[in-house]
């Protein structure tokens, strides 16, 4: 008797609740479509492997952090991530991607794709949110100078006027703030890359 096909959404829910096997089923179900899509843009097997891998690392991180919004289809979401990474690759290498119309994407989706902007923004917001939480762990004097400098864009002269300490003290506090931030990130093994 043929086994009933489990819906992607069910597999995603199971994976989120800790069933690792569900991820394997999802990958095996969609690997050809995603891989072919990436290859059709980059025409390089090794690069396709890398982008395929990075796509699923993003998928895993988003799912495990509970940031997946199940409004659309799982496959469309994964394809958008893959598409985004292809664009990133070409941007980094200053080359114009060769986009051809296909059943997955057409040129208009590249020219105007607000979904991708939203996804990038979501990841960026998530990272910035995590950074803010780490900043909260700093001593008050260091936190103050860091916020004035990076969030309020004040010069060290303005910071020293606002806080009533010398410019050198402000610079020193900033230095310690950055050292402490690095230490916290290292100690807690926090990943802040998108």
């Amino acid at each position: 008797m043929k086994k009933p096909i489990i819906a992607d959404s069910t597999l995603v829910s199971r994976y989120i609740s800790g069933h690792e096997k569900s991820l394997e089923i999802l990958i095996n179900r969609h690997k050809q479509r995603i891989y072919s899509f990436i290859y059709s843009k980059v025409y390089d097997r090794d690069l396709t492997e890398d982008i395929f891998q990075d796509t699923f690392i993003k998928v895993i991180r988003t799912l495990k952090l509970g940031n997946y919004n199940e409004e659309g289809k799982f496959i469309s979401w994964v394809m958008r991530i893959a598409h985004n990474l292809v664009i990133d690759h070409f941007r980094k290498n200053s080359r114009i991607p060769k986009f051809e119309n296909s059943h997955d994407f057409d040129i208009f989706s590249v020219l105007k794709n607000t979904d991708i902007d939203i996804e990038s923004k979501m990841i960026k917001d998530q990272i910035l949110g995590e950074v803010k939480k780490i900043i909260e762990l700093l001593p008050d004097d260091q936190k103050e100078v860091l916020i004035y400098r990076y969030y309020n864009d004040l010069s060290f002269k303005e910071i020293s006027e606002k806080t009533g300490v010398s410019i050198n003290t402000s610079l020193g506090r900033m230095r310690y703030a950055l050292i402490n931030l690095r230490n916290i990130i290292k100690k807690k093994n926090i990943i802040l890359t998108s």
Binding site: K31, E49, I57, I60, I134
Partner: peptide
Amino acid sequence: LEPKRKTINFILNYSKSIKVQKTALG
């Protein structure tokens, strides 16, 4: 056109190797 088994294994191992922890930082 499909990924190498090696790539899939890497992804699956990565998934198993990471843990999400609820901390004061979120």
